[in-house]
Design a protein around this nucleic acid. Sequence first.
RNA 1: GGAGGGGUGGCCGAGCGGUUGAAGGCGCCGGUCUUGAAAACCGGAAUCCCGCAAGGGAUCGGGGGUUCGAAUCCCUCCCCCUCCGCCA
Length: 425
Amino acid sequence: MVDPRIIREKPEWLRQKLRDRGLAFDLDGLLTLEAERRRLLAELERLRARKNALSEEIGRRKRAGQDVATLVAESAGIDPALKGLTEQQRKAQEQLDALLLTVPNPPHDSVPVGADAGADQEVRRWGKPRELAFTPKPHWELGEALGILDFERGARLAQTRFAVLTGAGARLERALINFMLDLHTREHGYTEAAPPLLVNAAAMTGTGQLPKFEEELFKTRDEGLYLIPTAEVPLTNLHREEILPPGALPKKYTAATPCFRREAGSYGKDTRGLIRQHQFNKVELVWFTEVGASYEALERLTADAEEVLKRLELPYRVVALCTGDLGFASAKTYDLEVWLPGHGDFREISSCSNCEDFQARRAEIRYRRHPKAAPEYAHTLNGSGLAIGRTWIALLENFQEADGSVTIPDVLRPYLDGEKRLAPR
RNA sequence: GGAGGGGUGGCCGAGCGGUUGAAGGCGCCGGUCUUGAAAACCGGAAUCCCGCAAGGGAUCGGGGGUUCGAAUCCCUCCCCCUCCGCCA
């Protein structure tokens, strides 16, 4: 949520920031509503103050045994106006709140301005794609030939965009999860969490999935709970409605969880292969920082995610998303894109974002700098470290051999009983 | 699913319908004492909103009601705990 004060005090700045995102947002409507809300509130509070004063006086006189009839009559006379104002004010506040929840995070000044992904800026590149003496195959051909990937049965069990990994494929999935969690917990200082995979609407609102993106979420019919689309949701909401004591920040969490996305509106996209599934595993990284520390933290978090790719020897590039390509809650995002020989292109494998205080405001995540200091909204960051399914794809496609076998990178071998390669049966 | 108990400040825990935003304790901050610390003693300190300020308003799980006045009474929803049943 944007700071309502900014709407009042820097409307032109906000208007430009939203325009940079490619949004024609009705800021004037918002401004009018906010002014009206404050006018009603001031009037309402004036009446309430009078009523409180009367009640106090009535109490005093009653104890003194004096007559209170005229005071009671005046107090009762205020009621109709009070009732009407209360209702008007409540409506204005509700409208304003609902509208505020739909305003995206203004981009940070360092974010390149642009309309769409075409304006994203490559920041750096790491590793060189292998020179292959044969035409690389896409992962679905490799996986099915290796007997470790099965889309047909996935669809039979659920529907399209679900897959089954079997044998070495399932073990590889598990190995990747364990390798990444070990790296982040042992070397990067993250606390591992195993959070609920179903969360309530308040949690989804806190991170920004609700109210605008409900159609992307799976929801349980009886309880009204939502399946998480990313562990960012439970991890960031871990400290919802808390005031963290001095010295508590930064806090860093990681979790490996399945993620569930309805992928509404992407019917034609990535229909083949594991790239876009309704369910996939992901290792997530989440930071809570003090206000001045979040951009330094974004670089660190991104580096932590990059380290996974480096150790797996997977070539990648880092891209700074432009204003028009930024997610709803993010003020700045780096995407990590891994090289996929079977696709002949780079594909997103991680997205690392600084949400500044946008989520903290929605979720009431605050901290104190000093024991006596006033609470401030924390900054929250999140990034994939990494998406497991897409890493699985990248391994198959990058380390494939002419005979369809796949070499296992060194760091992963301890997680696979020393296995050096996956070979067709 | 059945039966019962309970939700008060960072935590524990009091609270006859009227100076209770809320006793007391723990923890926290400042001070006195001390070489230093601890202990002891004294003092301070909730959160949010409106307002330049003075000040005002709201908040005792959420919402609604009764009343001039509700943490205290009524209704309703949510959550937690205990026991029984079922179950990974």
